[in-house]
């Protein structure tokens, strides 16, 4: 057993105390998110794992199998923390305060052997720096999972297909169109065309913040797919700046029917289906009381 491992093993209790003190003294302690007992349990577990791992003699390579338990515990902790809403700083400080605690103990124990102290300090520094890198890695992974899940949820609710008239569907697109979303939009639209037997679909893009060549290509794909099904597609909601970018990018939309507003598109759809909307002589209200 090497020096570092021995030091850790013998002074485990002292280190844990120091560490807990450091954590509790930190202003950023989130006792609203995690209880002190839970924190102590976590810390104890991690310290034990670390002591066992260093006992193998390996104090450098944290990717070695000896460190599997430590990495697992750390990953668990940081993923839970990411989900609970800890900030990166709070998560990072957790591991870094362990370093501080160990260093304090080392200073006490080895104050009469400066050379040894320096060696041990640098070993511990390196080891815990590696561990904090792992923490950050998994923390960010945890956050990304959260973002991905939210993304899925947004995608699910953001593609409604509305039946505005018999045989006419409208599909307001809100937000950026990427490939994955186009796929969802296209599938929903085509399924709805089959289900309702509609022959005209209006794609309203007034909620799309910007149209670049990729988005335009996705729109053209959707229009082509609708056409293959035997329905016509009208694109509406083209704002002035979008018309400008489309022309500047040299995108050819000439064989697609486009209208400035949804109202205009609806009018065109009516005339294509031979439907006429007329004003009656007098506004009669909703007649809810009758």
């Amino acid at each position: 057993m090497n020096n570092t491992a021995q030091l850790l093993q013998n002074n485990k209790k002292k280190i844990l105390e120091n560490w807990m003190q450091n954590q509790l003294a930190d202003e950023a302690l989130r006792d609203d998110l995690i209880s002190n007992e839970e924190l102590r349990r976590q810390s104890d577990e991690l310290l034990n794992g670390l002591a066992t791992a260093t006992a193998s003699g390996n104090v450098e390579n944290t990717y070695a199998p000896e460190y599997e338990t430590v990495t697992e515990i750390l990953s668990d902790i940081s993923i839970t923390r990411a989900r609970q809403g800890f900030t990166p700083r709070e998560t990072g400080m957790y591991v870094l305060s362990l370093k501080q605690a160990i260093n304090q103990v080392l200073e006490e124990k080895l104050s009469d052997q400066p050379e040894q102290l320096y060696k041990e300090l640098s070993i511990i520094n390196k080891l815990l720096d590696n561990l904090s890198m792992i923490t950050f890695d998994t923390y960010i992974k945890g956050r990304e999972e959260v973002i991905l899940r939210q993304n899925d949820e947004i995608n699910e609710i953001s593609t409604p297909v509305i039946r505005v008239w018999e045989g006419i569907l409208a599909l307001p697109i809100i937000g950026t169109l990427d490939s994955a979303r186009t796929q969802v939009v296209m599938e929903n639209l085509l399924l709805e065309i089959v289900n309702t037997g509609s022959s005209i679909a209006i794609l309203d893009i007034s909620g799309v913040p910007a149209v670049d060549s990729l988005v335009a290509q996705h729109l053209i794909k959707t229009v082509s797919a609708t056409r293959l099904m035997g329905a016509e597609c009208i694109i509406s909601g083209i704002r002035a700046e979008i018309a400008q970018t489309i022309v500047h990018l040299g995108i050819d939309l000439s064989n697609i029917k486009t209208k400035a507003t949804l109202a205009n598109a609806l009018q065109l759809a009516f005339s294509m289906r031979g439907v006429e909307v007329k004003k009656t002589a007098r506004y009669t209200g909703l007649n809810l009381n009758k």
């Binding site: 796929q183 399924l191 089959v194 037997g197 082509s224 797919a225 293959l228 099904m229 035997g230």
Partner: peptide
């Protein structure tokens, strides 16, 4: 629908072919 999507992804938009729902 799945067939239509496949054809579009393959880049075959069947120009010159008329289509209808049923």
């Amino acid at each position: 629908p799945a067939v239509a999507i496949t054809l579009v992804e393959l880049g075959l938009t069947l120009q010159g072919v008329y289509t209808a729902l049923d």
